[in-house]
């Protein structure tokens, strides 16, 4: 690389400003931020419409995230650790049951077990008026002895293995994993999460496209200023900075708009949802975005706005 002549490098330390490089840095960035803010305020209607477009685009995945978090919280409060019900053959006899109890007790994967004698089950079922009539008709107690087993592990794969193992044991008629519904819901949640991520990715590209276009218009509007600044010795950084701040501010404000939209929606849905869940005997209150999710939303929105501006500048300043 060719060395710059002293005459030109000297310009870089122009008029002793280099003594306070931090000051120049601050002055430059403060100036760029002021210009960006001024430009946002100068066209309030355009800014408002841009913010709404960005806000709605971001509110969809962020709102999905909020809903998923709420469903997960709801699940966490209701589904206990998965339990395995082990039903013995009706003709197994008490001896086999005692044997099984001992075997379960020794099993290293079992945390806790509870024996349900068939007589107790019969009594419990008879308490139900409708069932009693049917049971009374039957000659024998139709219910088997049963064990409710809580495993140490709660990963579905481990539980499945355990269920398989119990099924092989003698005198065991039927083994059932009680958490099947919870696992289905969990699988559904996982799928939903992927959908939210997909949606988020697509709308992130949309947001970049929105800022890209807005910055393109800005560059066209300020073409004269850019050209003059270049002639007067402005570096690319000096010219780009206000536009980058503009993009970042737009993203940030768009993120805040999305946050407000979600908070408003959560507030609006809270009461009817509470009423609905109350009917299902859940006490639950819909929460808006958590602090971490809110910070993430604003951070990502700001970053995407900045990125859209950067891509736009790369495209449009090259041809100016």
């Amino acid at each position: 690389m060719r060395e710059r002549s002293a005459w030109i490098t000297d310009a870089q330390s122009h008029d002793g400003c280099l003594e306070f490089p931090m000051n120049i840095w601050l002055v430059n960035h403060g100036r760029a931020l002021r210009i960006a803010l001024r430009r946002l305020i100068a066209a309030p209607l355009t800014t408002l419409l841009s913010l709404l477009a960005i806000g709605v685009a971001l509110a969809l995945p962020a709102g999905g995230q909020m809903l998923l978090n709420n469903v997960q919280r709801l699940m966490g409060s209701t589904s206990a650790t998965p339990q395995i019900s082990v039903f013995m053959a009706v003709d197994a006899g008490r001896g086999a049951a005692t044997e099984l109890a001992a075997r379960l007790k020794k099993h290293p994967a079992v945390k806790q077990q509870r024996f349900l004698p068939r007589e107790d089950t019969l009594q419990r079922m008879k308490a139900n008026a409708g069932l009693r009539e049917i049971i009374d008709v039957l000659p024998d107690n139709p219910f088997p002895d049963a064990f409710i087993v809580t495993a140490i592990a709660d990963q579905p794969a481990t539980l499945d293995l355990l269920v398989e193992e119990f099924r092989q044991w003698p005198k065991v008629a039927h083994v059932q994993l009680d958490s099947a519904w919870a696992r289905r819901l969990e699988a559904l949640l996982r799928l939903s999460r992927n959908v939210v991520i997909l949606l988020g990715g697509l709308l992130a590209i949309g947001l970049i496209a929105i800022t890209f276009n807005i910055i393109r218009m800005q560059v066209l509007t300020h073409r004269a200023e850019i050209e003059v600044s270049q002639l007067l010795g402005a570096t690319n950084g000096f010219i780009c900075r206000p536009f980058l701040y503009f993009g970042a501010l737009l993203g940030f404000a768009g993120g805040a708009t999305a946050w407000l939209l979600i908070a408003a929606a959560a507030w609006w849905l809270r009461t009817p949802l509470d009423d609905l869940l109350h009917l299902y005997e859940f006490t639950f209150s819909l929460q808006s975005l958590s602090l971490v999710d809110s910070a993430l939303l604003l951070g990502i929105a700001t970053g995407l706005g900045w990125l859209g501006a950067l891509l736009s500048l790369g495209q449009h300043l090259r041809h100016s």
């Binding site: 710059r4 005459w7 030109i8 000297d10 310009a11 870089q12 270049q230 007067l232 010795g233 402005a234």
Partner: peptide, 8 residues
Amino acid sequence: ALPFLRRR
């Protein structure tokens, strides 16, 4: 380097 020429 161009901006630094123009500044002078």
